[in-house]
C-alpha cells in the first residue's frame, strides 16, 4: 500500500508541474439548465476564439456547492441552478472566500403534466392533484387518509383512469416547484391547509409542510432519475401521468399528451404571460472573482443572455425556454458585473 501511494504521489507531482493555466470555462449544476447551457456553450465555441466551455450536470445543489468551494483555477466558474441560491450556500461561499456572486436569471421553465399520447386528455386543477396524491385529504370537513383510486373519484369530469403519478424525486429542483405551486395551492383550495394548521397547533409553516406529505400506497411514485426515466415509466404504464419540464415535453410531442392546469395549456407563451401557474425561473451564478481571470467568462455570460441566444426567437426558446421579459435589465447587469445583494 505505502509503496503504491508513494509511487502515485510521484506521478502526481510530475503531472502537476506540467499542468498549465486553464483556458476553458468550467460550469456545473442543474440538469434542467444543462441542455440550455450546452446549446450556449456550443454556439459560444463556434463563434468566439475561446474554447467551448465544459458543462457538467449533477443537480442545482451540487453545482452551487462546487462553486462555493473557493476561488482559483481548480474551482468552477459558473453554477447553473433551477432554484434560487439559499442563504446557507452564501454562507458556505463566504467562509471559503467567495464573496461576490452574480445572480443571472435568464428565463423561465414550465412544469407540465403529461400522459401517453394514446390515452385520454386531462384538465387538472391543483386541487385535483392534491386530492389525488396527498396523504390526507378533506372529506366532509375532516382530514382522512386519501381514499381516491381513480381520477374520476377526485373530479367527476376527469377520465376514469387509475391514479398513478410519476413525480420528480426530492433531490430535483422541479419537486420544490411542484410542492409549492401544485400541492400547496391544492391544499389551500380544498381547505386542507386550515385543518392542517390547526392540527399543528396553529403553526402555519408546519401546516404548509404537512401539505407536502404524499400517499405512500404506491399510487404516487418518486422518480429520482431524469425525465427520460419518467417517459420510460409512462411507456410501461400507459394509464399513468408524469411530471415533465416544458422543454422535454416539446421535444416529445409525438409521444406525450399534455394536460391543462386551471384550463391553461402550457406553452412558452402562457408561461411567459404568467397564465400557466406552474413555472419557475432559471438561474446561473457567476463567481465574480474569476471575471477577467479566466479567459472568456465575461464574453460567455454576455453571450448567454444576448437576444441572439436567450431572446424569444433564439435557439434556447426554440428548445423550450420561456424567455425572460426583463432580459434587457439582465443584460445591463451582466455587462456591469453587478454582484447580487443580500438575500431578502
Amino acid at each position: 500500500m505505502s509503496f503504491k501511494l508513494t509511487a502515485s504521489a510521484v506521478a502526481i507531482v510530475a503531472a502537476a508541474s506540467a499542468a498549465d493555466a486553464r483556458d476553458q470555462l468550467q460550469i456545473k449544476g442543474s440538469s434542467t439548465v444543462l441542455p440550455y447551457a450546452t446549446i450556449v456553450a456550443e454556439a459560444f465555441g463556434e463563434n468566439f476564439d475561446f474554447p467551448t466551455p465544459v458543462v457538467e450536470g449533477g443537480g442545482s445543489g451540487a453545482g452551487r456547492k462546487a462553486m462555493c468551494e473557493g476561488v482559483g483555477e481548480n474551482t468552477i466558474d459558473i453554477a447553473n441552478s433551477s432554484s434560487r441560491i439559499k442563504p446557507s450556500d452564501i454562507e458556505l461561499c463566504a467562509s471559503n472566500g467567495v464573496n461576490e456572486i452574480m445572480e443571472v436569471r435568464f428565463g423561465y421553465d414550465g412544469i407540465v403534466f403529461a400522459s401517453d399520447i394514446n390515452g385520454p386528455s386531462f384538465a387538472f386543477t391543483p386541487a385535483d392533484w392534491f386530492n389525488a396524491i396527498a396523504k390526507e385529504i378533506v372529506v366532509d370537513g375532516k382530514l382522512v387518509a386519501n381514499p381516491n383510486a381513480k381520477w374520476s373519484d377526485v373530479n367527476a369530469d376527469l377520465a376514469a383512469n387509475d391514479i398513478l403519478a410519476f413525480i420528480p424525486g426530492t433531490k430535483h429542483g422541479t419537486r420544490e416547484v411542484f410542492d409549492k405551486k401544485v400541492l400547496e395551492a391544492g391544499c389551500k383550495a380544498t381547505g386542507a391547509l386550515d385543518l392542517l394548521i390547526d392540527a399543528n397547533g396553529g403553526d402555519k409553516k408546519a401546516g404548509k409542510k404537512a401539505c407536502h406529505a404524499l400517499r405512500t400506497d404506491g399510487l404516487s411514485v418518486d422518480i429520482d432519475g431524469d425525465y427520460t426515466e419518467t417517459l420510460a415509466r409512462l411507456d410501461a404504464n400507459p394509464q399513468a401521468i408524469g411530471v415533465f419540464g416544458l422543454s422535454f415535453y416539446q421535444n416529445n410531442t409525438d409521444k406525450l399528451i399534455v394536460a391543462t392546469m386551471d384550463n391553461v395549456t402550457p406553452s412558452t407563451e402562457t408561461v411567459a404571460s404568467g397564465e400557466y401557474p406552474v413555472s419557475r425561473p432559471l438561474f446561473f451564478y457567476v463567481k465574480n472573482a474569476h471575471l477577467g481571470v479566466i479567459p472568456g467568462l465575461q464574453e460567455y455570460i454576455e453571450f448567454f443572455v444576448s437576444d441572439d441566444m436567450a431572446g424569444p426567437d433564439g435557439p434556447l426558446a426554440e428548445y423550450g425556454l420561456v424567455s425572460d421579459p426583463e432580459l434587457a435589465k439582465t443584460q445591463d447587469m451582466v455587462a456591469n458585473g453587478t454582484p447580487m445583494g443580500p438575500m431578502n
Binding site: A15, A18, A19, D20, Q24, K28, L34, A37, T38, A41, E42, G45, P51, T52, V54, V55, E56, G57, G58
Partner: peptide
C-alpha cells in the same frame, strides 16, 4: 461526466 466539445491536445499536455 461533462459536455466536452474541444478535443484534448496531443500528449503530454492533452492529458490535462
Amino acid at each position: 461526466v461533462a459536455f466536452v466539445r474541444e478535443f484534448p491536445g496531443a500528449p503530454p499536455e492533452g492529458f490535462f
